[in-house]
Design a protein around this nucleic acid. Structure first.
Lengths: 122, 122
DNA sequence: TAGTTATTTAAGCAAGTACTTAAATACAAA
DNA sequence: TTTGTATTTAAGTACTTGCTTAAATAACTA
């Protein structure tokens, strides 16, 4: 490890930051997980659609997104494993929707759309 | 492609969703890019630290994060290529900070920390 | 100048991602 | 039961990611 030995390094600042990160480690991991799931165009669209339409089945999503059912299903599995979406069975159809507890964070993530000039290349 | 041929499929809804996605395609890709970059615990911490401390050099970040300088440098390169962070040279030290135009979206992303009970496993 | 420090770049690699096609499962209706 | 539909799971694969170590750049200092 190339430890920083700069003359001007502010060791107080570095210690403070290190301590701060340590206290927030869990939160960083959890937030990064959610952002990582949303940080894929297909999953971001799925979350957007589920929020917008309330509920949709893998078959619908496959049609809307123009991709195979297994591909969609695998994305849904990730979102479900993370507790972000939930399912409701109706006959042989399975409806996916955004999990109650995740509504707020997903809404907040999707609200980032509305920030003008906020995305670098815009 | 296994097209959805469900009896109960709402073809009007599917067409509407497809159209909607088409109009927002660009935004989805751009937002997913930003979320994907923030969706890594190391980069999320870097963004948090840069916002909190205003500016830091790769050497500082290496110390704070407890990882090698090249590893940090490669993360910084990704953030810089995406236009999310910017650099300022001072002697042989290079200070990184959050790009002016990206301040808002990064602040919004980091504000997700503050949502209580919003992260699934919490 | 040579030596030291800060940073980036390159190459290699193990692990993860996102799709594909095929098979398995679950349920409904004839 | 057999057939068909909706969905998931599994296996294979091309691509990407995030680190590692070593080398290359760049700039300060003696």
């Amino acid at each position: 490890m190339n430890t920083c030995i700069r003359v001007f390094a502010d060791s107080i600042q570095i210690s403070r930051c290190r301590e701060d990160l340590k206290n927030k480690e869990e939160s960083f991991l959890e937030l990064a997980d959610v952002l990582n799931l949303a940080g894929n165009a297909v999953r971001l669209k799925i979350l957007y659609l589920l929020k917008q339409e309330n509920e949709l089945c893998p078959c619908d999503l496959s049609d809307i997104l123009g991709m195979t059912v297994p591909a969609v299903s695998q994305h849904l599995k990730k979102l479900k494993d993370a507790g972000i979406v939930t399912t409701k069975k109706s006959g042989q159809t399975i409806f996916y929707s955004v999990e109650e507890q995740s509504q707020r964070i997903i809404s907040s993530v999707l609200d980032l759309f509305k920030l003008p000039n906020s995305i670098p290349t815009l």
